[in-house]
Design a protein around this nucleic acid. Structure first.
Lengths: 318, 318
DNA sequence: TGGCTTATACTTATCCTGAGCATAATCGAT
DNA sequence: ATCGATTATGCTCAGGATAAGTATAAGCCA
């Protein structure tokens, strides 16, 4: 009966909690993905959901604008989790975090704000494979992972750990799947290879390069990157990050920056053009090296035409 | 500074709210998708997140078990939204709903519980296209939508509305996209064609068939269906809904039931087999009509092998 | 002018997909 | 025993999409 339901639903004030709104705000400048950070680049913009907010999104917009001076455009929800400092202190969480992904163009951050644009690969150096595995990681990463796998109690567990490592990090001839950002972070966390985990109780053996953040923020960022990498493959969201006019190479560089891997140039153009995602502006890019490129703009009509349909980018995992 | 951040984050009790946990619990029986309902089939299992819960998921599990006697297996988060009765009363929401999708096999619901399995198409008759558009809707739906489009103020608006309708409902030669469950529901809501909208203030002109639910529950259900329809295409989640052993036709029927559309039999088998998702048990299905079919079981190894990789089902939109 | 760089057009081989044909195995009615 | 209905299973074929490469065009600069 609805009566019974109502009753159970109204435990009310006794179970009151607070909800934090957290934003992963992304831009791409000069072929580098940036995220908005505050607190000396150690935190994502965030703040509590308050009674004055008319909705979750509006609360988020209010906080981001207050902290960064930057108004939010495209926004989508990422994930909600109970925050408690991740390692298990046994008490129950009294606060939850609701995270969002926002896309914009980089702008001057208003004065008087402590917000900055930081390169997102500063937080996840291992996610940038455009030039292969970064030198700072080439030697350490795989061997640390193998050591972690070896340290398991049983051989079955060892094998299982190593299999997870090879899959998520594309080791042993497996190929790299750029979407597994969160899985990689979680695995490194489990392996005690990142500072947040050490802080949460593991022993501080050896840590992998990469800037840390407060609380769960780096994990939220990983979630945002993963979502964006997945989404650019089937929705025309890259254009939220592009200037009004751009060359096909600039577009390609942005996609590559987000995906952390390179794509075949000719095929990229074919795909973009055959889908009629863009149209020529008639203008030609100025001050460039090499043969000048045509400028294009996003055909906003596609948003109406297909509503939710599809975009394809040559980023499947071969 | 982290200090400043901390301060803003600790507005504390003044902004305390309650969080409800809501479950879309799905099973497939005899080729029909079912959802667990309570309150006389008018609500999804749900309850407030309480201090005794160690995490959001555990809170959800506790509520579902208490209300339905059914333990939860596979669970994933769906969406979080501020609940306020959807139409805008101007007050701020003091409660949020965190929704989850759960997959199981239908089981006898324990006695003494008011929970039932209901067919999900009772709530969304227009989503079942396995036998074409249901007769109860064939005439009304398109014409009602057209009327709604026509009722817009300007011709530009009219065109825009009709375009949305044709895209989401696959009218005018466009093809049906089974994933747009939520968009269709939202559009019908906007058009005042479902009871929840009427209750929320629109005028009760003509309403489309389909059982209603309390609050936002039908919208949450739409979100769950959409997610599941999307997910079966690239993750082996269908098997969570299958018995231990099954024939390929049973598997196909389950997929078709979820997707609400039919698939090409031979191609379906080709895809399943070439991906090595299943293995023969050696047994043969008993008491069937026609040539007896081999029984298969899910190869649980694939979960380890690919972790997050891929499954393909012949459900792309041509 | 030649060399460097980027843009853009085409080609080719392979794989995937949708659709259909053909045959096999079972049951029940005649 | 045979026919018809029903489901299972194997195979083919055409078209499209994809990955990868070759070739040519159009600028700049020394």
């Amino acid at each position: 009966m609805a009566g019974a339901l109502r009753k159970t639903s109204k435990t009310g004030a006794a179970n009151a909690i607070t909800a934090d709104l957290v934003a992963v705000l992304v831009a791409v400048t000069d072929g580098e993905p940036k995220i908005m950070t505050i607190a000396n680049d150690g935190a994502l913009p965030s703040g509590p959901f308050e009674f004055t907010h008319r909705s979750l999104q509006m609360g988020l917009r209010a906080w981001v604008e207050a902290q960064t001076g930057h108004p939010l455009g495209y926004v989508e929800q990422l994930y909600t989790f109970a925050d408690r400092g991740r390692a298990g202190d046994t008490k129950s969480p009294h606060s939850i975090s609701i995270s969002y992904l926002g896309l914009t163009r980089e702008d001057k951050v208003g004065q008087g704000f402590e917000a900055h644009w930081s390169g997102w690969y500063e937080y996840f150096p291992w996610e940038d494979r455009r030039a292969g595995l970064p030198a700072s990681l080439a030697k350490t990463l795989a061997s640390r992972l193998r050591a972690w796998a070896k340290s398991a109690a049983t051989t079955a567990l060892q094998r299982e750990r190593w299999q997870r490592a090879t899959i998520t990090f594309g080791l042993d001839e497996r190929d790299w799947n750029e979407e597994l950002v969160l899985q990689r972070y979680e695995l490194l966390y489990e392996a005690g290879l990142i500072p947040e985990a050490v802080r949460d109780g593991a022993d501080a053996t050896a840590v992998i390069p990469g800037r840390q953040m407060i609380g769960d923020h780096r994990r939220i960022l990983a979630t945002g990157i993963a979502r964006l990498r997945a989404k650019i493959k089937y929705r025309p969201v890259v254009f939220e990050l592009m200037p009004a006019e751009f060359t096909l190479l600039q577009l390609q560089r942005s996609v590559e920056a987000l995906a952390g891997r390179l794509v075949h140039k000719q095929n990229f153009r074919r795909l973009i053009e055959q889908q009629q995602l863009v149209e020529e502006t008639g203008a030609i890019a100025a001050d460039t090296v090499g043969r000048p490129a045509k400028l294009f703009r996003f055909r906003h009509a596609v948003l109406a035409e297909r509503a939710i349909a599809g975009t394809k980018l040559p980023l499947s995992r071969t």
